[in-house]
Design a protein around this nucleic acid. Sequence first.
DNA 1: CATGTGTTATAGTGCAACTATAACACAGGA
DNA 2: TCCTGTGTTATAGTTGCACTATAACACATG
Lengths: 123, 123
Amino acid sequence: MFIEIDFESEEAIYIQIRNQIVMGIATSAFREGDVLPSVRRLAESAGINMHTVNKAYNMLKNEGFISLSRRHGAVISIEADKQQDIMNLKENLRILLAEGYCKNISKEEVHGLVEEIFAECGE
Amino acid sequence: MFIEIDFESEEAIYIQIRNQIVMGIATSAFREGDVLPSVRRLAESAGINMHTVNKAYNMLKNEGFISLSRRHGAVISIEADKQQDIMNLKENLRILLAEGYCKNISKEEVHGLVEEIFAECGE
DNA sequence: CATGTGTTATAGTGCAACTATAACACAGGA
DNA sequence: TCCTGTGTTATAGTTGCACTATAACACATG
């Protein structure tokens, strides 16, 4: 799996890395136990600084997607707290759906999009 | 409808204003044609600077939620481009659902959350 | 003419993002 | 034992955004 940075994007580089890895896990490009490239290697291959990668990895660690250690490197390791995770998702969904609702996107259309997205990932 | 700023929040003030107004439109606290407080009045009532409000209003204008003019002030005025709006929503949903999917939140649970949120707003 | 809109200009402070070096602590292999 | 590769920490510098502060402008209304 390649991590590619869009230097023109408004999104911070470390957020781009974070999102791509989350998407990678969701699409099974990365699986529990897989080892991510080291901060130095990923930084070099992406043409950015080591600390920017480190920041992304720390974010992923704090969000419970990976574990970090000097021995094993950055390893995919999901820590789920169903209660909390659903709360977070709901809070973020609220704003997103509000935007759509203002633009007359119906509940049914949202359900449709959810189906489409799960179909893409489940492939 | 009151706009309240959480100065402890990590979210930028102008984003907080933007989100609260979008939520306000979605919940019908604001309706098409309603006039928002002027940049100066809202700034004063929220205890912030005029330009910060102006930035939020310009964002809302660019996103097609309000119109701005010296005559009429800031007026709720939805500009919808269904094609584009659905594309945007889908792109944002993708990342959000990917996060949930990694944490084992099922498609059915997502559909459930969507129902809950629409029930809250529609209420 | 005074008032109230949004708009623009200028300027300053504070902080986040990003980069650049360097060194450290620790584990594994030669 | 020494070298290498992990993540981690420290220091420091540049850039740009968020926010504030004044001030003035263009325009419409009463």
